[in-house]
Lab assay of single mutants.
Amino acid sequence: TFTSIVTTNPDFGGFEFYVEAGQQFDDSAYEEAYGVSVPSAVVEEMNAKAAQLKDGEWLNVSHE
């Protein structure tokens, strides 16, 4: 299960995956970082959410 939350205070020191406002979700980078295949429906969902981000916001993507 993939989830996401919007934050204005990303923790770059941890093992977190963020999408910056104005960027798209990079499923290849996510797969490389976590060894998890990302279904195309999830990629579309995360890109739709990322498109709604305002300046200074980040989308924190995770999975269980």
Score class of each variant (00 low, 15 high):
residue 26 D to F: 05
residue 29 A to F: 07
residue 9 N to D: 12
residue 53 L to T: 03
residue 35 G to W: 03
residue 42 V to C: 06
residue 2 F to S: 07
residue 56 G to Q: 03
residue 40 S to G: 10
residue 25 F to I: 03
residue 12 F to T: 06
residue 60 N to E: 11
residue 23 Q to D: 09
residue 9 N to A: 11
residue 48 A to P: 01
residue 55 D to T: 13
residue 50 A to R: 01
residue 31 E to L: 13
residue 58 W to E: 02
residue 32 E to R: 14
residue 26 D to R: 05
residue 6 V to G: 03
residue 35 G to N: 08
residue 29 A to E: 07
residue 39 P to K: 01
residue 7 T to P: 00
residue 8 T to H: 07
residue 57 E to P: 00
residue 1 T to W: 15
residue 42 V to M: 05
residue 8 T to M: 11
residue 9 N to F: 09
residue 22 G to C: 05
residue 46 M to T: 03
residue 22 G to L: 05
residue 15 F to C: 15
residue 50 A to E: 03
residue 25 F to K: 02
residue 40 S to D: 10
residue 28 S to L: 14
residue 28 S to D: 12
residue 30 Y to I: 02
residue 50 A to I: 08
residue 19 V to P: 02
residue 44 E to S: 10
residue 17 F to C: 07
residue 54 K to L: 10
residue 26 D to M: 06
residue 27 D to I: 14
residue 17 F to T: 01
residue 34 Y to P: 01
residue 55 D to S: 10
residue 56 G to C: 05
residue 26 D to I: 07
residue 21 A to L: 05
residue 4 S to G: 14
residue 4 S to M: 06
residue 55 D to F: 08
residue 16 E to F: 14
residue 8 T to W: 07
residue 11 D to A: 09
residue 62 S to A: 08
residue 14 G to K: 09
residue 45 E to I: 11
residue 44 E to H: 11
residue 13 G to H: 11
residue 20 E to R: 09
residue 27 D to W: 15
residue 7 T to E: 07
residue 55 D to V: 10
residue 8 T to P: 05
residue 16 E to W: 12
residue 60 N to H: 15
residue 62 S to Q: 10
residue 18 Y to P: 02
residue 62 S to D: 03
residue 39 P to S: 06
residue 20 E to W: 09
residue 57 E to G: 01
residue 61 V to H: 02
residue 27 D to R: 15
residue 4 S to P: 08
residue 10 P to L: 04
residue 20 E to Q: 13
residue 45 E to P: 01
residue 38 V to H: 01
residue 43 V to D: 02
residue 10 P to Q: 04
residue 12 F to V: 07
residue 44 E to V: 11
residue 63 H to V: 06
residue 49 K to G: 05
residue 56 G to V: 02
residue 18 Y to Q: 07
residue 56 G to D: 06
residue 53 L to Y: 00
residue 52 Q to M: 14
residue 27 D to Y: 15
residue 40 S to L: 13
residue 49 K to R: 13
residue 4 S to K: 04
residue 52 Q to E: 11
residue 58 W to M: 11
residue 36 V to T: 05
residue 9 N to R: 08
residue 6 V to Y: 00
residue 7 T to D: 04
residue 20 E to P: 14
residue 11 D to P: 08
residue 10 P to G: 03
residue 29 A to I: 07
residue 42 V to I: 12
residue 18 Y to C: 03
residue 5 I to D: 10
residue 44 E to Y: 01
residue 58 W to S: 03
residue 28 S to Q: 15
residue 17 F to S: 02
residue 5 I to A: 11
residue 31 E to A: 12
residue 61 V to S: 00
residue 58 W to T: 02
residue 3 T to N: 11
residue 43 V to Y: 06
residue 63 H to I: 06
residue 8 T to E: 09
residue 32 E to H: 13
residue 27 D to V: 15
residue 24 Q to H: 12
residue 18 Y to M: 04
residue 48 A to C: 10
residue 15 F to T: 13
residue 11 D to F: 11
residue 29 A to M: 09
residue 14 G to L: 08
residue 41 A to F: 13
residue 17 F to N: 02
residue 59 L to W: 01
residue 59 L to S: 00
residue 64 E to P: 10
residue 33 A to E: 08
residue 60 N to S: 14
residue 46 M to P: 02
residue 54 K to Q: 11
residue 23 Q to I: 04
residue 25 F to T: 01
residue 28 S to H: 15
residue 26 D to G: 04
residue 3 T to F: 10
residue 47 N to F: 03
residue 4 S to Q: 06
residue 21 A to P: 08
residue 38 V to K: 00
residue 42 V to T: 06
residue 36 V to N: 03
residue 37 S to Q: 13
residue 34 Y to Q: 05
residue 2 F to G: 07
residue 13 G to S: 14
residue 20 E to T: 08
residue 48 A to I: 12
residue 22 G to F: 06
residue 39 P to F: 00
residue 53 L to A: 02
residue 6 V to I: 12
residue 32 E to L: 14
residue 51 A to V: 06
residue 49 K to Q: 10
residue 35 G to I: 02
residue 37 S to I: 13
residue 11 D to Q: 11
residue 23 Q to P: 00
residue 3 T to E: 11
residue 58 W to L: 03
residue 41 A to C: 12
residue 46 M to R: 00
residue 7 T to Q: 04
residue 4 S to V: 08
residue 25 F to Q: 01
residue 1 T to Q: 15
residue 15 F to W: 11
residue 47 N to Q: 07
residue 16 E to A: 10
residue 31 E to R: 13
residue 38 V to D: 02
residue 3 T to V: 14
residue 39 P to M: 00
residue 52 Q to S: 09
residue 38 V to Y: 00
residue 41 A to W: 15
residue 13 G to A: 10
residue 3 T to S: 09
residue 19 V to A: 00
residue 39 P to D: 04
residue 19 V to I: 13
residue 6 V to W: 00
residue 30 Y to Q: 01
residue 58 W to P: 01
residue 43 V to C: 06
residue 26 D to E: 06
residue 4 S to I: 06
residue 39 P to G: 04
residue 43 V to I: 14
residue 62 S to T: 13
residue 14 G to P: 08
residue 50 A to S: 07
residue 37 S to K: 15
residue 46 M to L: 15
residue 13 G to Y: 11
residue 35 G to Y: 02
residue 1 T to C: 15
residue 11 D to V: 13
residue 54 K to D: 05
residue 42 V to L: 05
residue 52 Q to R: 10
residue 35 G to Q: 06
residue 8 T to Y: 08
residue 53 L to D: 04
residue 28 S to C: 12
residue 58 W to C: 04
residue 63 H to C: 04
residue 17 F to V: 04
residue 51 A to K: 12
residue 8 T to S: 10
residue 45 E to V: 07
residue 63 H to S: 05
residue 56 G to S: 04
residue 19 V to C: 04
residue 63 H to R: 06
residue 11 D to C: 14
residue 59 L to Y: 00
residue 11 D to N: 13
residue 32 E to W: 08
residue 10 P to K: 05
residue 64 E to H: 14
residue 59 L to I: 03
residue 37 S to P: 12
residue 55 D to R: 08
residue 16 E to G: 15
residue 32 E to F: 10
residue 35 G to E: 04
residue 46 M to I: 15
residue 33 A to T: 12
